[in-house]
Structures are given as structure tokens and as C-alpha cells.
């Protein structure tokens, strides 16, 4: 076995095992930190697929942003009437298992029916994709780039408004 392949499988395990553990664990805060490990594994797999810019973006946006948001969300919603918001209960487990198994079967069959050995697996270039991504963003993808910038601006203002209105009401009431 080539060392490259061993590394690939270990990073794949780093992405998959925490994802399974999120399903099993009963504590919300563990789920958030396991998601962090899983996203790190996905970032490592991006590097293997030659997407170096996306790997860095994944680490910065997900681990620097989304995980912090999730942990803030968990901390802000931890006290409840029955006092068990930090533990997770599951329901409809048979239905969920059935749906996930059927999706898994569909995916396995669709992968087996395609012949991937025809695809050229030789890595064509080891150059960084960074300059190519930047040029693409400013030429072919200029409109989606601007549109997604506007979208995230509106979404963040909306999020601050929705969350902040309630907090302001609470502080006025006290």
C-alpha cells in the first residue's frame, strides 16, 4: 500500500468516524466538537483533491465561524423548563434508519454502475488553484460572486435583527 493511500484513508476516517459519533452521542456540546473534527477531516480531503484554497476556506469559515456560532447557540439555549437541553433524545429511529439505508443503497448502486476506472486518475497539475480561482471569480463568476455577497449581507443583517430584537425586549422588561 502506498503511503499516500494510507494517509487518504486515515483522513477519510477522520471525517467519517466523528460523523457517526455525532449520531450516537447524547450530548449537544460533544456533537458540536465532533463536527469540528469531522470538518477538519473534510478539509484534509480537499487538499488531497487538489483544492488548496477551498481547504483553507473550509477551515476559516466552518471552524472559525460556524462552529463558534453553534457553540454560542448551544450556550444561549441551555436552560429549559425540563433542564435537559444539553442532552439529545432521538425519535423515529426505525424510520430514519430506513431512509438512510435506502439512500445508501441508491448511492452504492449508482457508484457501482459507473465505470470509474476509465477516468484518468493521474494528477494533471500540482500547481496551486488559488490564482485560477481568483481569476474565475472576477471574470466568469463575477455575477454569482456579487449576488452571494449581497445574500450573505442580507442574511447577516436579518440574523442580527431577528436575534437582537428579542434580546432587546428581554433587557427592557427587566
Amino acid at each position: 500500500m502506498k503511503p499516500e493511500l494510507i494517509l487518504f484513508y486515515s483522513f477519510a476516517a477522520l471525517a467519517v468516524i466523528p460523523a457517526v459519533a455525532i449520531l450516537i452521542t447524547s450530548k449537544v456540546i460533544y456533537a458540536a466538537y465532533l463536527l469540528l473534527v469531522s470538518l477538519l477531516g473534510v478539509a484534509a480531503l480537499y487538499v488531497f483533491a487538489g483544492a488548496d484554497f477551498l481547504a483553507v476556506a473550509q477551515i476559516m469559515i466552518y471552524i472559525g465561524g460556524v462552529i463558534v456560532l453553534l457553540i454560542f447557540g448551544i450556550m444561549l439555549t441551555s436552560k429549559t423548563k425540563e433542564n435537559n437541553a444539553l442532552t439529545v433524545t432521538s425519535k423515529n429511529t426505525t424510520l430514519g434508519l430506513l431512509i438512510s439505508l435506502s439512500v445508501f443503497t441508491i448511492l452504492v448502486f449508482s457508484f457501482l454502475s459507473n465505470n470509474f476506472s476509465e477516468v484518468n486518475t493521474e494528477t494533471t497539475n500540482h500547481k496551486s488553484t488559488l490564482s485560477f480561482v481568483g481569476k474565475n471569480l472576477m471574470t466568469d463568476y463575477a455575477f454569482p460572486f456579487e449576488a452571494v455577497g449581497l445574500l450573505i449581507l442580507i442574511a447577516l443583517i436579518g440574523a442580527v435583527y431577528v436575534a437582537g430584537r428579542q434580546l432587546a425586549k428581554d433587557s427592557n422588561g427587566k
Partner: peptide
């Protein structure tokens, strides 16, 4: 990734 970040922010606010 950008849309997912926006979605996470709005969902947590909700």
C-alpha cells in the same frame, strides 16, 4: 460554503 454560512447564522438566530 458561503450560502451555508448564511444559513447557519439565520438558523441560529431563529
Amino acid at each position: 460554503i458561503v450560502v451555508a454560512a448564511a444559513e447557519a447564522a439565520v438558523a441560529l438566530a431563529i
